[in-house]
Amino acid sequence: MAVALALCWAGSAHAQSELDAGALTFKDFAVADRGASFYRPLAVTLEGTATTSANVLQIDNANGLARLHFKAVKMDAAVPLGWQAIDDRERGMAYSEDQSYRLILWRVDFAFEGVSNAEHYAMAKVGTIEARRPPTKAQARKLGDGTYLIVYENVPPSRGDHESRTVFDLIMPNPANPKEGALMTLGMPASQGLRGLKLLALLKQNIHISW
């Protein structure tokens, strides 16, 4: 799996400059429940914080997705049907029915993090995560639109996980203020890393950030 992901990561110039979902769509990750999951009691809560369900803007059954608004981070995002989504005071979170795919949306103040811009943040995070979470290995790359992608492999499993994880960070700088940005973190079982990278491309295509 690691070799396959590395080959994808180091492939053609086109692949290096942007994310590509290939032939996959949200329907490949969805459960056809017509949006019912977003109105059920949350299966996950964030300890120590007041959590609510994210605001549902649209259920798109034809395309297998729901469009959601995350108030805390001022972002609209599309996620597969069958997922659930949380809004709290600092971040948005969405996760698959079995919780093996987990998405977190954040706002980032680069100065507060002790760096000057998105590039420095990406480089610093690679070093920090490798030092704090061995045997995790990470590498970062700037994409063609100015965003930064970090790939973490061999991430130790959390409680409830059945194998090591692959995690992607997508860092999106504010085009009007390089000292601010947004962060999309998507994690999945390591055996599904290539598939997860394609989902990240779909998520990126459908994110709207109110700067």
Score class of each variant (00 low, 15 high):
residue 55 N to G: 00
residue 3 V to R: 09
residue 187 G to H: 04
residue 76 D to Q: 03
residue 204 K to P: 01
residue 56 V to E: 00
residue 129 I to Y: 11
residue 114 G to W: 03
residue 184 M to N: 02
residue 80 P to C: 03
residue 135 P to F: 13
residue 69 H to A: 06
residue 10 A to D: 14
residue 70 F to K: 01
residue 159 R to S: 15
residue 7 L to F: 07
residue 98 D to E: 13
residue 201 A to R: 07
residue 109 D to R: 12
residue 166 T to N: 06
residue 184 M to P: 00
residue 110 F to V: 07
residue 32 A to N: 15
residue 13 A to M: 09
residue 168 F to N: 03
residue 39 Y to H: 14
residue 23 A to T: 13
residue 51 T to C: 11
residue 184 M to E: 01
residue 121 Y to W: 08
residue 204 K to N: 12
residue 27 K to Q: 11
residue 14 H to T: 08
residue 156 P to T: 14
residue 104 I to L: 10
residue 126 V to S: 01
residue 100 S to Q: 05
residue 75 M to L: 14
residue 142 K to M: 14
residue 53 S to P: 06
residue 18 E to R: 13
residue 177 N to W: 13
residue 187 G to T: 12
residue 121 Y to F: 08
residue 30 A to P: 01
residue 25 T to G: 09
residue 151 V to G: 00
residue 145 D to S: 10
residue 62 A to K: 11
residue 48 G to S: 10
residue 178 P to N: 07
residue 41 P to M: 08
residue 147 T to P: 07
residue 180 E to A: 04
residue 107 R to Q: 11
residue 124 A to Y: 10
residue 31 V to C: 08
residue 107 R to M: 06
residue 118 A to D: 00
residue 132 R to I: 14
residue 19 L to G: 01
residue 2 A to E: 15
residue 176 A to K: 06
residue 193 G to Q: 04
residue 121 Y to M: 00
residue 1 M to F: 04
residue 25 T to K: 06
residue 36 A to R: 13
residue 24 L to K: 09
residue 76 D to W: 03
residue 66 A to H: 02
residue 27 K to I: 09
residue 118 A to K: 01
residue 99 Q to P: 02
residue 175 P to W: 04
residue 2 A to M: 11
residue 164 S to L: 08
residue 39 Y to D: 13
residue 208 H to M: 13
residue 159 R to M: 14
residue 42 L to Y: 12
residue 116 S to A: 14
residue 61 N to M: 09
residue 185 T to A: 14
residue 109 D to E: 13
residue 41 P to I: 05
residue 172 M to R: 04
residue 34 R to K: 15
residue 160 G to Q: 09
residue 127 G to S: 10
residue 138 A to E: 00
residue 151 V to P: 03
residue 88 D to T: 09
residue 49 T to K: 15
residue 50 A to P: 15
residue 183 L to D: 03
residue 130 E to R: 08
residue 147 T to Q: 11
residue 164 S to K: 12
residue 125 K to R: 08
residue 67 R to N: 14
residue 8 C to L: 12
residue 168 F to C: 03
residue 110 F to H: 06
residue 175 P to F: 05
residue 54 A to F: 04
residue 129 I to R: 11
residue 39 Y to K: 12
residue 9 W to T: 07
residue 102 R to V: 12
residue 174 N to E: 11
residue 105 L to Q: 00
residue 194 L to C: 15
residue 165 R to S: 10
residue 124 A to Q: 15
residue 156 P to L: 05
residue 150 I to D: 00
residue 37 S to C: 13
residue 143 L to C: 06
residue 66 A to Q: 06
residue 125 K to D: 01
